[in-house]
Nucleic acid binder design. Structure first.
Length: 848
RNA sequence: GCCGGGGUGGCGGAACCGGUAUACGCAUCGGACUUAAAAUCCGAGGCCCUUAGGGCAUCUGGGUUCGAAUCCCAGCCCCGGCACCA
């Protein structure tokens, strides 16, 4: 009788004592860094979703190990951050107490789950030996000019009482607490990730990642190709400073220097557009209500209306805005005008909240004929809607495309394919739209009023948090010296114990209440100075943790050069898709920066990334509010880790996810029990050798399937193949031989490592199986029998199956097929017109 | 709205490059063992027609093909991401 708990505890102790799971970090010849996303240690304990992900990653690591790689599989804890702090607030226990006990609990559960972790190299982001280097990274970015403090409209969560990165705002709501996020103007630290937008995007072309994850990042970075255009302000133009010399008269001199350009642009409204070809149709402009030029362009008689509109929209949060979207557009005329540089016409300047301050330039040229939003706005406020782009086919032969009408009954005409041409666009009329757009930009560019430009949706990464539970940002403010970085030798800036760490609505961090913390002498002049009291974002902690793992233990450097060269970049990273645009983007960015600064040799941190699917329970999402939370502890206590692991991997395709049902566990449970019984019976029988050709063939086929499936993470079908093989060797009460089952034990080891170890040892193997066993090979020539069964179809319908020798000729197959009674019946009275024969696969007789 | 992924028995899910649809497992039913039950073992099963056999089945409707779950077109539904992004 197999006792999972006793056996599993025994092998876990063995692995620990022997250091089975600790590769030689300095000498490994075939290093393989197998990474999984470290968890944040919640008080609820290890979630089954975590374990699902870890088990899938662990199986891959064990598979590589059995194939001869030196696998390094570490784990750690993302223990700083809002998620941990919020939890501490909820249960009213100080995080300095709560977090260590949570971590201890996690470690106990992870050990019990049989994961191949190197427990000597764990990471805890709250450990000063770790966050000192998080602060160090901040300083490197600061020195490189990539960490900057700026006043900016930021997302403010009134419930978490902190700012959030754009990535943490989901549909206008806080990703943690679902509160409506407000916009506030605050001075914050930003990392200039936008400078790397293009490279982050380009590298997506070649890194080996799950396709969906790549696509999500592409969308998030959101590249738009187009142009910047400058619309001179009318009042300025009237004053004669810039003039309308660039106008449709085309009389530009082309000799204006850069300085002239700057002067012209200084008195203009800058817009970004992806459709410079439509500039002749720009009949008005719109500024975001908070645009700085609003005050400049607003006329005296419109000032009151403008102020009121600004007040009204400022009070409206993002969710409200979405509702007004359904009601239609709103806006107010400023009374000001600008000059359309293409037509030289005066166009009115409006403000409206459908233009967002934080995208592009916060201002647009409105082309109502060719933009749905502008169209809606123009109809509402009765602005002209002249079409300037039309399908080539709509222009009659011989007609002058400078004077073509296009019906816009159905709304804006937004098509932009190679079949569109420009109309009503002066000398550009008749040109294909794309080409025309480029020509227009070039023409206006001569006067400094246009230039090609690529814009990104990606924003700079705001890393300041007005919270307590994080690494203090290592900056000191001195009245005399200004912003002074903490000298590297003074790191870490320790997070002090603060009894009342509650955040408040002031926008000032809890550390600002700890005078003994923030009062500090300026490192440069020694005068009384003040520390930064914000802490950094959790995603900065997790942005580099994988770099630390191999170098855990070095306290004088963040990552050792030799270790890093040997183990990085990460060979395989398996994790959840929910981090496609957060952690995975930030860690790529930080790696790129560290590469550029000469600290690491690679620019992309992960060679391969695979996303895993989501686990649901009986058709419903797993959540505390639904009360359907699965506690791995209970299941492992009841069935053992091996059964639980195997079940998790069997319930659906790992990369897709699956449905957890208690009753389903019975399958893998019985499977492992039978495996145990059969292998023990084989050992008792003392039989060896591979004498049964059917079993031998099944064995080779199974090795092939399981090997391929593990490589591609198709764990569910790998388990199915092992089940199938077991059914074969023990069919009709048969007792298998040792040689029939030993390869099976090895292939089972990634799923059920404890039982595999036990069976390996009992069948004469030297422990640990993971050190002494080699992944079995298969022989292609032994995959097939000499005879094959092939279907005989008539007009594509199955009418018989026949057995023929492998490789039999069409004549042989056809002759045999025609002998079949059922085939003859169906052929009776009809004429054979065609025969399709695929050797060893099928025969199709086509009749009339 | 845009971008991705998906829809196969009672259920979870298989199916290489278009070639015997429903592997493997769960639940169910029948049998063996047992005083009985559990456990275990053996067996059955897509649906419909009385059987040999036949008809119909992979979201719906068309198409390509000797042959379609697989390829193409149109539509419906579900899931995930982005979203007044100029």
């Amino acid at each position: 009788m197999y006792d999972p708990t006793a056996t599993e505890t025994r092998w876990q102790a063995y692995w620990d004592e022997q250091g089975t799971n600790e590769p030689d970090l300095d000498g490994a010849e075939r290093p393989f860094f197998n990474l999984m996303m470290y968890p944040y240690p919640s008080a609820e304990g290890l979630h089954v979703g975590n374990l699902y992900a870890f088990t899938g990653a662990d199986i891959y690591g064990r598979f590589r190990r059995l194939n001869g790689d030196d696998v390094f599989e570490p784990i750690g804890y993302d223990a700083f951050g809002i998620h941990s702090e919020n939890h501490a607030l909820r249960v009213d226990i100080h995080p300095t107490e709560l977090i260590p006990s949570n971590i201890a609990n996690f470690e106990r559960m992870l050990r019990r789950a049989g994961l191949m972790y190197d427990w000597k190299h764990t990471v805890d982001t709250t450990d000063p030996d770790y966050y000192r280097w998080t602060q160090w990274i901040f300083l490197q970015l600061y020195k490189a000019g990539l960490a900057v403090k700026k006043e900016a409209p930021v997302n403010w969560c009134p419930s978490c009482q902190t700012v959030l990165a754009n990535e943490q705002v989901i549909a206008g709501l806080c990703e943690r607490c679902d509160s409506v996020v407000e916009q506030r103007n605050l001075s914050q630290w930003f990392f200039r990730i936008t400078r790397y937008a293009e490279r982050l995007l380009e590298n997506l072309e070649w890194i080996d990642w799950s396709q969906t994850t790549r696509t999500a990042q592409q969308n998030w970075i959101g590249r738009s190709e187009g142009a910047r255009l400058w619309f001179p302000l009318d009042s300025v133009a009237a004053a004669g400073a810039a003039g309308d010399s660039a106008g449709a008269s085309g009389g530009t001199t082309g000799t204006s220097g850069k300085a002239d350009h700057a002067a012209v642009r200084d008195k203009a409204i800058e817009v970004f557009t992806t459709r410079p070809d439509t500039v002749f149709g720009a009949t008005y402009m719109v500024l975001a209500p908070e645009h700085p030029l609003v005050d400049v362009v607003t006329s005296a008689d419109q000032r009151e209306a403008v102020e009121e509109y600004r007040r009204a929209t400022a009070a409206v949060d993002l969710v409200e805005r979405r509702k007004t979207e359904e009601k239609g557009k709103t806006g107010t005329f400023t009374g000001g005008h600008a000059i359309n540089p293409a037509t030289s016409e005066r166009v009115p300047i409006w403000i409206a909240d459908y233009v967002l301050m934080d995208y592009g330039t916060g201002a647009i040229m409105a082309v109502p004929a060719h933009d749905e939003r502008d169209f809606e706005f123009a109809e509402m406020f009765d602005l002209p809607i002249p079409p300037v782009v039309a399908p080539a086919t709509s222009v009659p032969d011989g007609a002058d495309p400078s004077d073509v009408a296009l019906s816009l009954d159905g709304g804006a005409y937004v098509e932009h394919t190679e079949d569109e041409i420009l109309i009503n666009s002066d000398r550009f009329s008749g040109m294909p739209a794309d080409e025309g757009g480029r020509a227009i930009v070039e023409w206006l560019g001569e006067a400094g009023l246009a230039e090609p430009h690529v814009d990104y949706r990606l924003r700079d990464w705001c890393i300041s948090r007005q919270r307590y539970w994080g690494p203090p940002i290592p900056i000191i403010y001195c009245d005399a010296c200004g912003v002074v970085p903490v000298p590297e030798e003074d790191l870490p800036v320790l997070l002090p114990y603060v009894e009342d760490f509650r955040p408040d609505a002031s926008g000032i961090a809890p550390l600002a209440r700890a005078e003994e913390f923030y009062r500090v002498a300026c490192p440069e002049c020694g005068a009384q100075a003040r520390r930064e009291t914000d802490v950094s974002d959790t995603f900065l902690d997790s942005g580099w943790y994988f770099l630390r793992y191999p170098s855990v233990g070095f306290d004088d450097r963040p990552f050792d050069a030799g270790r890093t060269a040997r183990w990085l970049p990460v060979d395989m990273y398996i994790g959840g898709e929910e981090h496609a645009v957060l952690h995975l983007l930030y860690s790529r960015f930080l790696t790129m920066v560290l590469h550029e600064l000469g600290y690491v040799e690679f620019e992309e941190p992960y060679r391969r990334f695979r996303k895993h699917g989501l686990l649901i329970k009986e058709g419903a999402k797993i959540s505390k509010s639904r009360g359907n939370v699965i506690l791995p502890d209970e299941y492992i206590a009841r069935y053992g880790a091996d059964v639980f692991r195997t079940y998790l991997m069997f319930l659906g395709p790992f990369q897709v996810g699956g449905d957890f049902r208690d009753v389903g566990i019975a399958g893998p449970e019985r499977f492992l029990k039978r495996t145990w019984d059969s292998v023990m019976a084989a050992i008792d029988s003392g039989r060896d050798g591979l004498v049964d050709p059917d079993v031998e063939r099944a064995l080779h086929a199974t090795i092939k399937t399981v090997t391929e499936d593990l490589e591609s993470l198709d764990y569910n079908t790998a388990v199915a193949a092992l089940m199938d093989y077991l059914n074969t060797v023990r069919a009709d009460g048969r007792v298998p031989s040792i040689d029939e089952v030993r390869p099976m034990v090895i292939m089972l080891a990634p799923f059920a490592p404890h039982m595999a170890e036990e069976l390996w040892e009992r069948s004469g193997g030297e422990p640990s199986l993971f050190d002494t066993a080699a992944w079995p090979d298969f022989d292609e020539s032994k995959l097939h029998t000499d005879e094959v069964e092939i279907p005989v179809q008539i007009n594509g319908k199955l009418r018989a199956t026949i057995r023929v020798a492998r490789g039999a000729s069409q004549d042989t197959v056809q002759a045999l097929a025609l002998e079949q009674e059922n085939v003859q019946r169906h052929l009776e009275g009809s004429e054979l017109r065609k025969v399709i024969h695929i050797p060893d696969r099928m025969l199709n007789l086509v009749v009339r």
